[in-house]
Each structure stands twice: as C-alpha cells, then as structure tokens.
Design a protein around this nucleic acid. Structure first.
Length: 469
RNA sequence: GUCCCGUUCGUCUAGAGGCCUAGGACACCAGCCUUUCACGUUGGCAGCACGGGUUCGAAUCCCGUACGGGACGCCA
C-alpha cells in the first residue's frame, strides 16, 4: 500500500512554526517513500474556525513549499459521514446512547477532581436501556472502550507505548446535537483518506489510545503512528508569542528564506551525522521518521538567523532583487531605474553581509536615497576638517579617471594613498562615510562603482562641505 | 489526583557496550585575514540530570529518584 500522510491543522489561528515542522515531516516522509502528503482542515469547531485562518494556513504552507499533493479536505463537510459511522457503531452494539447533560458531566468531573479521583465517565448508560423518562431526551453517543487488557501502540518515534484499558473511559463520539467529536472525526477521516502514517505532535500521544478504540470497533486497520515532540521556547515552556516570532508568515515578514526555515526545522529534533546544511532534495532522500528525537526541542532564533545567512549568501542575487526592491519601496524610498541599477550592482556584495532580507534591504538603502543619508555618529566623527579636505582633493583626483570601474578604482585609490603617505584605511573610511553615511558597507571600490561617477563624486563633494551647524 | 512521554555542552545535535581523554553546529571569548562590516580561518570555554545495578568494560542495557513536558472536555 502506498504511503499517505496528512497534516491536519485546525483553522483557529495562524500556522505556527511547530505546525510547519509537523507538515514538513509529513511531506518528507511521504516523499521519501514515494507516497502522498495531504492536508485536512479541521474546521469542525464553527465558533473558532475562520476563513482568514484557512487562507493564512494555505499561504504559509505554500510559502514553505509544503502545499499538499491533493486538494485539501475540509472536515466540516464530512459531518454526515461521521454521524453515519457513529450510528453504525451504535447498531453493532459497540457504542451506546448516554443521556447525561453537559452540565451533569461537568459536575461529575469536578467532583472527581475534588476527591482526587481521575475524572473519567462512569459508564452509567453502558449497559442500560433508556426508560420512558429518557423518551425524547437528547443523547450523546459514547463508544464502548474495552474494560480489560491493554492497548499497545508501536509508535515510530516514541517506541512501544502501552496503557491499561481500565484507564480508558467511554468517550463521546457524537454530540447530542449530532456533530462528531474531534477524536471520532479524525479517525473516520484518516481511514477514509487512506492515511497510512499519522505523524503529529506528541500532545496527541495519549489520544491515540482512545482513537484505537474506534479503529478496533469498526474493524479498521490502525495506521502507523509517529508522535513528534513539540517545539518549545528558549525557556523550555510551550512556544508562544512572548518568545518572539511564532507565526510562519511572521518569519517571512522578518526576512527569512523558506529554505532556511525548513532546513532549521528539519534539524530541530532530527540529525544526520554532522550535516547542518541539508537541501530539500537531500532531506527527501535521508529523512527517516524513526530518527526523530523524543525530547522537545527549543527554538533558537540565533541559529535560524545564522542558517538564513548561509542561504542568503548562496542565493541568486537576481532572485533576491525584487524582494529587496519591495522592501525599500515599502520603507518609503521612491526610486527609478537608475537607482534600481545601483541596488542590482551592489546586491552580490550586500548579500554576503546580511543575515535576513530585512537587513539586506536596510543595507541597500543608502544607494537609493537622494545624496548620501545623514551620517550616523561614527561616520560623522570620521568627517574631520582634515578628512573633508582630503575628500575634496580625492574627488578631483578621481574625476580625472578615464574609466569608472571597480578594478581601476581600487588601483588608483591605493596609488593615491601611497602618494599621500597614508594607509588605504585612512582614505577609505572617510570616503565610506561620505558615500554611505555609515562606517560599514561593501568594499569601497564596489560601492564607488555601483553608485556611478556622478553620484559618487557628488556625495564626496557634499561631504567635503562643512556640516551645517 | 491518575495515566503517558522525555532528560548528552547555554541551544540544536552525533553517539545504537569498547572507535569517547564524548564529535559537529549556533552562541560566546581570543587570534589571524582585511579598505569597514561580514565571510573565512585558528584556538578556547562548556555536557552524558542524580543514585543504584548488569558487565572485564556503560553516554549507550535494567531499576529507582529528581526535574521537565503532555493527556485526562458534548475543544481541536
């Protein structure tokens, strides 16, 4: 049987980074085994599910290259089927009608907790026929869990996990309003979708036993299960907003590359020897769910950022250009083709120095301003009266160059420094301050060339003037 | 309260009884490279949670303890 996996988020909010990893593992596992990776939107909770969330999840997955191999299944549209299976279980005597109201059950649970007993349903209606008093009363359908023995799950990640059936109670599979509960809907859908491997967060591990009851009652073959650990924040607690970015789209906004995010997520909880940089293609060949660790991993933004820098350096500058332009334009900088050309010329040198697209755009900003940006404190300190005089002199010297290209510029700059009896650094740093308003930039020859003769000389002369008081 | 799961440098991990005086990566510190910043490079810091077994030999196997996480809903 061909492998089929699925990612099943509920659209009650944005897709967070932990969900993305679950999706990634599902896709990689399916690809590794030549199978399909599907998506099911678990939107049975009408009150909390939103269309915006659905769209955000789809967009997040698409950005990460984790779009499913088949159109997504919407759980809410399968309600009739869920009810049908519940009725079948009832007909087969594997489930029964229970007439307690939600309020009564809540009271029972509270009492149990107060008496320090496990809050389990007592099975009151399990072997009882409804009497005249129940006629017309709403009822929920509960499944009959086995009373003796134990349920064993061979989890691909967690290993053999077993629980005594006495620990299991008869859970509700169909609510009194006819809608299915989560546990029930998942089993029916996974079965109908032909899911062979359920790969999900380990917060579902104990749910698995209860789902097995349904599989067994229907006589359905249980899928293989793999429960992967959750991602935690830097402090070890469940990942949440206060730890920084958690939404996938937030990472995109902050300028992370999808390949870098996936590579990072892959290495979180999984490793292949000492390899750190692993392409998607390679991951599809190497990934084995059995190698995933059993302990929760902590989100490390510093490492993600480093990895992003690696991918950014390797990226094709032309592919990066539109996004950099977009960010510059959004930053309120208007510019035409001439300025765009400067950015393009600078990009290869800039991308070596940036860790994120946000940084990249920021570092390119000086090229599209009108004249040099106002110097920052360090740059201003470099523009001493002496340095300004030198800039004027240097501008005159450079204006005489027959060609304006990087190689010549470097040559003549070195020559100039030697003639003046100063180090190249003493020439380059004030020049950098004049051109970029900053003490850091790509190599000075590259910067000069990218700005173009007119703009570069103009900025030098402007900086040569005494600063306004 | 009951049940389930986990624990190797600060973080992510390699490690499947001798190859481990525990390897790599990020972060951090110091040096080198250098026109700045990055990159690169050299070196450093730092870990098998604890206690018992088993064994000639344990990070690796077993048991307990501690600590962390998760589940116990007519939520998903």
């Amino acid at each position: 049987m061909s492998v089929r996996t699925r990612f099943a988020p509920s659209p009650t909010g944005f897709l967070h980074i932990g969900g993305a990893r679950t999706a990634l593992f599902n896709q990689l596992f399916a690809r590794r085994h030549g199978g399909q990776y599907l998506l099911r939107i678990e939107d049975t909770d009408k009150a909390r599910s939103t269309q915006e969330a659905v769209e955000q999840i789809l967009e997040s997955l698409a950005w990460l290259g984790l779009s499913p191999d088949e159109p997504p299944v919407f759980q809410s549209q399968r309600a009739a089927r869920h009810a049908e299976v519940a009725r079948e279980l009832l007909a087969r005597g594997r489930a029964y009608r229970a007439y307690e109201t939600p309020e009564e059950l809540a009271a029972m649970r509270e009492r149990a907790l107060a008496e320090k007993r496990p809050p389990r349903y007592d099975g009151y209606w399990r072997d009882r026929e409804p009497g005249p008093a129940e006629a017309g009363k709403p009822f929920a359908i509960r499944i009959k869990a086995p009373l003796e023995g134990e349920t064993v799950v061979e989890d691909l990640v967690q290993g053999t996990v077993r629980v005594k059936n006495a620990e299991l109670d008869d859970m509700i599979i169909l609510r009194s309003d006819g809608t299915p509960t989560y546990l029930h809907a998942v089993v029916v859908d996974d079965h109908d979708m032909g899911i062979t491997h359920v790969i999900r967060g380990d917060d579902h591990l104990t749910n698995t036993f209860r789902q097995c009851v349904i599989y067994d009652a229907m006589g359905w073959r249980r899928p293989h299960f793999a429960h992967i650990p959750l991602i935690h924040g830097a402090d070890g607690a469940k990942l949440s907003k206060r730890h920084g970015a958690v939404s996938v789209l937030e990472f995109r906004e902050q300028g992370f590359l999808p390949e870098a995010v996936c590579n990072y997520l892959l290495r979180l909880g999984w490793g292949h020897g000492d390899e750190e940089i692993i392409s998607r293609e390679r991951a599809e060949r190497l990934f084995d769910i059995a190698d995933v660790g059993r302990a929760a991993a902590r989100m490390d933004y510093a490492k993600l950022t480093h990895l992003n820098g690696v991918y950014l350096r390797r990226a094709d500058p032309e592919a990066l250009l539109p996004e950099v332009m977009r960010r510059l334009a959004r930053g309120g900088l208007a510019f035409g083709t001439e300025k765009a050309a400067r950015v393009r010329a600078l990009l290869p040198a800039l991308q070596e120095r940036a860790k994120t697209l946000a940084e990249l755009a920021e570092s390119a900003a000086f090229a599209v301003t009108d004249g040099a940006p106002a110097p920052d404190a360090k740059a201003a300190a470099l523009l001493t009266p002496e340095a300004r005089a030198r800039l004027a002199d240097l501008a005159e010297f450079l204006s005489a160059l027959p060609d304006w290209n990087r190689a010549d510029l470097e040559h003549w700059l070195r020559d100039y420094a030697e003639v003046k009896g100063v180090t190249l650094k003493e020439v380059a740093q004030p020049l950098r301050a004049a051109l970029t308003g900053s003490t850091t930039s790509p190599p000075i020859d590259v910067t000069l060339e990218a700005l173009g003769r007119g703009e570069a000389l103009g900025r030098m002369l402007a900086a040569a003037e005494p600063p306004p008081e």
